[in-house]
Design a protein around this nucleic acid. Structure first.
Lengths: 132, 132
DNA sequence: CTGCCACCTGCCCGGTTGGGCAGGGCGCCC
DNA sequence: GGGCGCCCTGCCCAACCGGGCAGGTGGCAG
């Protein structure tokens, strides 16, 4: 039996954060595992091992309905909606007019089948389009 | 004026994986954010930004700040807000006047420190007062 | 070259929101 | 009995929201 290595006194060593993966898509899981494996201070949990945190990705992808796929601009607007921004604030932050901001908000309401911006944000959070 | 660098043909550049954090414990969240911020190929999502994956950890309870403790009626109103209900719809469903519904909404905005109902719902979801 | 998509802008209108102010009743605690 | 918190109602006003309609430009694929 080999003896455990002697740890010299020194600064307190913080245990690495143990992260488990719960990602259905193999390609994404492989990429994430490869990236995290080399991060000092982190280590990936073995199968079944309790973890400090779990990295999850939606197993069921958001509906692949073309009508509900959001454009990059719409996603930007949605992120700002989720921060409670008004159309005016959205326009200011994106450097567009309030009419354009309203146009994108309207598109979001249509694609998310929402009755208003609050409903859109809540719905988007439920289906995993955004994370609050 | 320096010429733009020539990019030699090589492997296709892959967009970074966007990771959101849903970790209530501030110390753990800070450590993870610090470790992940320097990983090539990964980047942390801004608040509300759609992410490829979410890192979650068992959370501490929401802050027990008396000023933010919601009354039973306020919780009812908040639940309806999270469904996108208008003040009129809230009034109808709770059997109260629209003025009273507006009064409760106003109290919620005050207690949650929100700028509007959308902000209130998003914030309440973030701190765990409601689940979407 | 053409058509389509994404993004952009303006105008108008009715409805909604949010805040402030006024007031009230009821139940509970000191 | 008095004070307080919760819940309720009304009115007014400015600002905002959402929808409809009109139009434009630039980039890209066929």
């Amino acid at each position: 039996m080999t003896e455990p290595p002697v740890v010299a006194p020194g600064p307190v060593v913080i245990a690495p954060i143990v992260i488990a993966l719960d990602i259905a898509a193999p390609a994404l899981a492989d990429r994430v595992a490869a990236l995290l494996a080399s991060v000092p201070g982190l280590r990936l949990a073995a199968a079944g091992e309790p973890a400090d945190a779990v990295l999850v990705a939606p197993g069921a992808t958001p509906p692949a309905d073309p009508d509900t796929a959001l454009t990059p601009r719409e996603r930007e607007v949605l992120a700002l909606l989720a921060e409670g921004a008004s159309n005016k604030a959205i326009a200011r932050q994106l450097g567009i007019s309030t009419h354009t901001a309203k146009f994108h908000v309207g598109s979001l309401l249509d694609k998310l089948d929402a009755t208003g911006r609050t409903d859109a944000v809540a719905h988007a959070a439920r289906i995993g389009v955004i994370h609050l």
